[in-house]
Every structure is written in structure tokens, then in C-alpha cells.
Write a protein that binds this DNA or RNA. Sequence first.
DNA 1: GAGTGGTCTAGACCACGAA
DNA 2: TCGTGGTCTAGACCACTCC
Lengths: 240, 240
Amino acid sequence: MKARVKAIYNQISDDLKNRIMQGKLSPGEMLPSQSQLAETYGVTQMTVRQGLGTLVEDGYIYSVWGKGYFVAEPTLETGIINLPGRNFFGQEFTPMMNEVDILRADQEIADKLAVIVGSKVIRTQLTLALGDNPVALDCRYISYRKGEPQLENELQYADFPQIVARHTNSVVVKSTFSIEAVHLNEIEASALETSPGALGLCVEQILYDVNGKPLGWSRMVCRSDRYKVSGVAQSYSGKV
Amino acid sequence: MKARVKAIYNQISDDLKNRIMQGKLSPGEMLPSQSQLAETYGVTQMTVRQGLGTLVEDGYIYSVWGKGYFVAEPTLETGIINLPGRNFFGQEFTPMMNEVDILRADQEIADKLAVIVGSKVIRTQLTLALGDNPVALDCRYISYRKGEPQLENELQYADFPQIVARHTNSVVVKSTFSIEAVHLNEIEASALETSPGALGLCVEQILYDVNGKPLGWSRMVCRSDRYKVSGVAQSYSGKV
DNA sequence: GAGTGGTCTAGACCACGAA
DNA sequence: TCGTGGTCTAGACCACTCC
């Protein structure tokens, strides 16, 4: 066993964290002041602040100007979800077939990408499979700005935000997504080897650049008996 | 107009952030060292570190021991989603009817809550509505440990994690959730004023305490034509 | 005015990576 | 060995809150 040296500020934050988790410090309760903690632990104010800082980041406590630090209420109102990114292809799913073409935007595409009807748009279509079983149909639209979509083979490996970034010369910094239940239509059903009207889950995602301009739109339709969305929510962001 | 004084470390982080967003600093590129930055901005290393710290927290850069700071690759693989918490009742939806009872766990409940079959379990059932239109059926199970479920009226106002915490004397620190498409059964359909077999979205959530023990299980079934799940993903956590 | 959090300095020393 | 990031000190001053 090696006596691992731990930074003092980590010892302080761990100590306070434990007291919070054990209920010795209750939500809403005020912590000792920075100067008191500094004296208690025999360190300077800056070191104490560093420890308190990590607790603030992780959501255990918060500070009020001129008053003090207080123990936060644990909440679970937001969750984190894995989106169809790079790992989606690499690890879980394998793309079975893909198609890339350029088309003119119809009304729906124009709305989603905030371009005028008739604009050039790059479309990619994939079938995602788990082993030999097709699970999802994936259709993506990128507003066409520069460069040719000569990278058919690259498309299935890189993740969508990266492809969009390359084609639009913009960085994707935000995306919105929605998840809804749908009935599969004939095309989707036959591609996913099931019957029309079967239960499906549709995950839609729109990518935006820094200025809030839509750069890409993806729509994935899954067989709901083979895939469901899952995620985690934690009241404290740090490792417990 | 008031000339707002901004902290030096914020000026530094803003400056670097702009250079990253404008592409003057590319992903993978190394930043000037702490001492170089200190000299450039005419401040001490500690002040520079504070500025770099916020950029690390927000995911713009990362540091490598003994080497330097590097510009991070933007990723969008995880998203944040709003879960049925307090705001779910308070703002969007109104609970129309509720029911509270105690029952013995069947196999399914026992599995979810990690208790033995036949254990006492508290069950609450709500109908959630948007205006006059019923949108979702919500059913929640709490492993019964102490205290009586005397708080029928309180149940519809507090959020689930809080109720669970009060009944189990434990803090809810984690939850997992899943979202899947379902067909509504007769009971659900009639409660939601639609026909059996209609499209539904089912959001399931399990709450855990610090030791990973399940404390509660909730299952919400929505009319998919009146509700869909949505969320946001951002590559940088700070405000841009 | 006393107590609090927030910023900043000018040093010091340690741990790590690469040459 | 040198340059890098990571930790820490012993002060100082400012801004805010409450009495």
C-alpha cells in the first residue's frame, strides 16, 4: 500500500463532502467562513477557497456574496443522455448501407435548416444494425455551402457534428433534440424488417453554430422493440 | 453606461475563449505556458491559472501534466434533458386526480426496487394534464420503510425525489431513466381520452441512494400526440 | 464597522515530461 | 536539466451584507 499524498484542498473538500453526505451539514445550513476554515485546517484562505471551489462546481454548496457558503438542496431535474455521436457507430451499432446525394430543399427541410426552399442540401442515409439485425434508419441533412460530398466512405465513421463542421466551415456548439413515438411507414418498416405501423422511436437532432444558425438536421427512426433511449441524472456532478 | 469592472482572470479567459471561437487557436493546439501568459497580461501565475481554470471547467481547453494546455475538440455526444421533477407539476402540467395506497410488491416491483416479493410498497397514481387535456399517467412506487403515507395532498406538489427522501430517510443522489415507445392499454387509453393501441411514450425512472440502493421507481405514460421529450446538448458548458 | 466572500500579488516548492 | 503544470503561503485590498 502506498500512502498517496492528497492535496490539502482535496482533503478539505472531501471532509466537507462527507459531512454533507452524512447529514452532519444539512441543506440550507451555512458553512464556517473561509477564515474559520483556514484556521481549523491550518492553511491559508486561498487554499480553503480552492477546496470550496470544487464543491461549488460539483453542486454540493453555493456561495452568497457577503454572507457565506451554504449547503445546496439535491435536485434531480435534469438528466444526461447519450446522443448518436461517434461512439454510436464505433461501438454499439454498425452501419449496413449508406447513400449520399444532393437535393433541393423542400418546405420541411428548408424550415429545419433555415434556408430558402430549393437550396442545395446534402443528404446521407444509413441503416444501423446490431449484429445482423437492422435497428434504425438514419437520415441527415446538411446545408450545402462549400466542398463536394466526396467522402462517402468517411461518412460512416466520423460523427455527424464533425462532418457538418467540415462541410460548413463552422463549429457546431449546440444541438437540440427531441424524442417521440411514431408508427413506421412502409419504407422504414421494410428497411427494418418489420411490418408497417410497427412501433418506432424517432430521435431528431438539429445542430447549430455559434450564432444560432442551423447547420445540420438528423432524424433517426428506430424499431422500438430493439432500441430505447436511456440516461442518467445525478444531483452532484462529481464522483461520489 | 457604467464601465463595469471585470475581474482580470475573466478578461483573460474571455480573450482566450474568443481566440478559440474565432479559430485563431485550433483544437489540439497548445496554449502559451502559464508563465508566458502571466508576462503577456502582466499578472501573476495564480491569476492566469484562475482564468485557465474556468476554461477547463467549461470544456474549452484541457491540461496535460508537464506539457501544457491544449485547445479541446468540441463534442456533442451527450445531451441534457428535463426530467419530471418539481417544475413538471408546478409550471407545465397540472395533476388532475391522484390516488395513494400501500400494496405488496409483485415480481416486477420487487425487481425494480430490489426488495423481496411481498414487501410493502407505497404507490401513487396521478393524471397529468395540460389545460383540460389529459396528457400522461404517472405511477410511482416507493419502498416502504418508515412513516405512513399520510401526505396525499402534499404528494402532488413536491417532486418525486423529495417524497422518496422523506419516506426512506435517504438522500436521492442518482437516477437512471429510459424512454420508449408503447401502445396504450385500455386503462391508459381511457384515462387519456383516446383509444386503446394509440401511440404512447413511456418514461421510466429509478432513483438510487448513495450506496446504489433503489429507493423509488416511476413510470409515466404519455399520449405521444400531446407530448414529446426534448433537450439540449452543448459542446461548451459555459454561456457563449 | 465588523464579518463575509472575491480578487490579486510575489514569491516558493513539488511532480511530471522531454531532451 | 529545463520547462511545464499543480500546490501553497502570508499577506493585501475590494465589494457586499447585516447590524
